[in-house]
Amino acid sequence: MTSTTTLPGQRSGARRQRSNATGPLNWLVVPALILFLVFAIVPLVGVLLLSFTNWDGIGAITFAGVANWLRAIADPKMYHALGLTFVIMALSWVIQTPISLLLGVFTAGSQKYRALLAVLYFLPLLLSSAAIAIAYKALLDPNFGLAAGLHLPFLAQDWLGQPQLALGVVIFVVSWQFIPFHTLIYQGGVRQIPRSLYEAAEIDGAGRVKQFFYITVPQLKYTIITSSTLMVVGALTYFDMIFVITGGGPGNATRNLALDMYLTGFMANQMGQASVIAVVLVVLGLGLALLLQRLGGKDNNGSQLEGM
């Protein structure tokens, strides 16, 4: 966990001396390569090809030209799903990032009670998305859930029946599920900030708030980029939890792209049409990942100590 993540393409200096007998070494990558080619690269090409076909999931696959693409471009449902995906992405980022960052700093502290709290904070990491969705469905029941338990009538809403509320629930539950993970990332980042920076700031008389904004946040720049990349790209493929908790409903209120792809392909049996959505997802994912890496500057690796 503490190792610096260096891209394999980069050399780590003269320490690495290439072996001469490369022939047998080539064979060692073959099992991984074959599996990756067959189940990742072939499907990646396949999804583009399938977007130009009609297939109901069982019968024959027939060529359809650009019909699916034209239909997708003219389909308001597609834009709705796209917009929703970005809304969920943006809101869950806005909620998750400050909380995870503060919790990361909090749990990185050496106080005993913080260590104990951290153990409990990370519990949601153990639950599957399906389990979390099922638990929240019960918890949000207006009569037998949290509202009745806490005697707070304003919590007794038809949470999953109203479009706006259901979207809010999805964003809340996504945050509840993933904040622990990002807290863990920030905790790791904070622990690598050199203490001497804080000691110097103490001498200069900077208080906690100042130290946080002038030392902690700038030092965590690359952690923030890593965490944000994972949040943003992950938001594209939120599927399991939303599928179980709302199924995309009410109406299409929580039907994001990933769900739209599944429902179009495997429920409405229009695999060609669903493949169009899949291609959009792949392109968005690649684009966002590249954009965020670019934002972070060229050398995004092991630069935590930059400025020292």
């Binding site: 990646l44 999931g57 493929t237 990933a258 599944y262 669903a274 792949v282 590249l290």
Partner: peptide, 24 residues
Amino acid sequence: SVNALFLMGLAIPLQATIIPVYLL
């Protein structure tokens, strides 16, 4: 090239390729 291919795989949301995986 194998290494470059694996690195590219990191940036792709592989769940999006589920339909061809199903066909395969």
